[in-house]
Design a protein around this nucleic acid. Structure first.
Lengths: 223, 223
DNA sequence: CGATCGGATATTGGATCCAGTATTGATAAT
DNA sequence: ATTATCAATACTGGATCCAATATCCGATCG
């Protein structure tokens, strides 16, 4: 419905800072484990520390940053165990969302998904990692939001956010992008047939491949 | 070294305010839908509005309060739809937690659960609603925490918190308390036999009864 | 030479003050 | 009488200032 998404600057400083911080963290610009210097960031965003701290409290609740009393905020660092737990929880929640969504699939949803999928494939071909990540995310959430379960969607959103910095690693490699494209096509095919079980199975495989790739990457990075 | 452990008074004002606010909301002292007047609450807790606002940001992320720009915070109000969604999500997450927990049940867990269950029964007999709610919660979380999945536990915790104000309604009636006692016994029995499926089934029933009761209560309260 | 203590500095936590927005209530016009 | 207008008020959002705590680094002592 609302596809006219213009870059409206948020009304309050905290909303602005929240968006900017989230982008900085999920893009990896602020390194996992690194400290968050409030004075410096406030200056960079041209706000005082007050709205910055409120934004950080929101991010803390989402698990993007951690807070130590009198020592400040640090970008959250995820171990392999953490990642596996997050993906397992995603599996539980997304499976439910997709099952409900398939049963009540609103008109035009499949057409929308196909349109998004074309963008995914374009980005995959051109090796545009950022666009690939964005389109991939849009694909999944278009489906999940069709469940009509707002809290479920919100939980899944925070789970995706908390691993965004790691997911980008995954899409930098062309074979992974091609794999994701194939898997999306399989999901779409299942959806066209209204086959709930098949759709869930395809998505599970999709997720499992991502976890396996992350496992490799993190093992390599170990020093 | 470390000073002697006193009455666990939180180190910072926001931690203190966060605990007090959570208690005030989950106990129903602050009514669902009601506005949160920052100046008044800050005065009551003898802090400034700054730590109060940071605590409110945390509670917003947990879903205990909602925030409207330039209008302030309000205690979250849950519709029956919301409650049903929350219980459904709890079912998904708690089922996983319990399955994992049963497989790796640490020594002494069952003994601990039996001890807690005695407290549940005592509170149920005496009609001590607050103690009943506390012991019931402890029972469930002792089991859930045995899963060793910290994020899962955290999610389930926030889901419980967000419905605490409504759950108390449930335990005010003696038949409901007796029912809960019976259901806990059934869960314990399944656990003693290491029967994962049975334990999950019992807990599902336990939850379903709670939802049914809430449905009644909310229908009655409709005016 | 290593460990420990103590002060200087950096950084966070909190209070107060100011600005901007929403709400309220009174007034006026139809 | 009803509604629109607009000023007074209440409350939130944000900036600045101050206090409390941690960290860093050099001096001192074993």
């Amino acid at each position: 419905m609302s596809s006219a998404v213009q870059k409206r600057r948020p009304q309050t400083a905290q909303q602005f800072v929240l968006e900017e911080l989230r982008r900085a963290i999920t893009s990896g610009e602020l390194r996992p484990g690194g400290p968050i210097r409030q004075e410096a960031l406030a200056a960079r965003f041209e706000v005082s520390r007050v709205p910055l701290r409120e934004a950080l409290k929101s991010l803390e609740a989402e698990g993007l940053v951690v807070h130590h009393v009198h020592r400040g905020y640090f970008v959250a660092e995820l171990s392999l165990n953490d990642l596996e737990e997050i993906y397992r929880i995603r599996e539980l929640l997304e499976t439910e969302a997709v099952r409900i969504a398939v049963r009540r699939l609103p008109d035009g949803t499949i057409a929308t998904l196909e349109r998004i999928q074309r963008e995914v494939e374009r980005a995959a071909d051109e090796g545009d990692v950022a666009a690939m990540a964005a389109a991939n995310r849009l694909f999944h959430f278009t489906l999940i939001e069709a469940s009509g379960m707002p809290r479920l969607v919100r939980l899944v959103t925070t789970l995706w956010d908390s691993t965004d910095a790691y997911r980008s690693l995954y899409y930098t490699e062309s074979p992974h992008r091609k794999q994701a494209v194939r898997e999306h096509r399989a999901v779409l095919s299942a959806l066209r047939h209204g086959d709930e079980d098949a759709a869930v199975r395809r998505l599970d495989e999709h997720r499992a491949h991502a976890v396996a790739a992350l496992r490799e990457v993190l093992d390599l990075e170990r020093d």
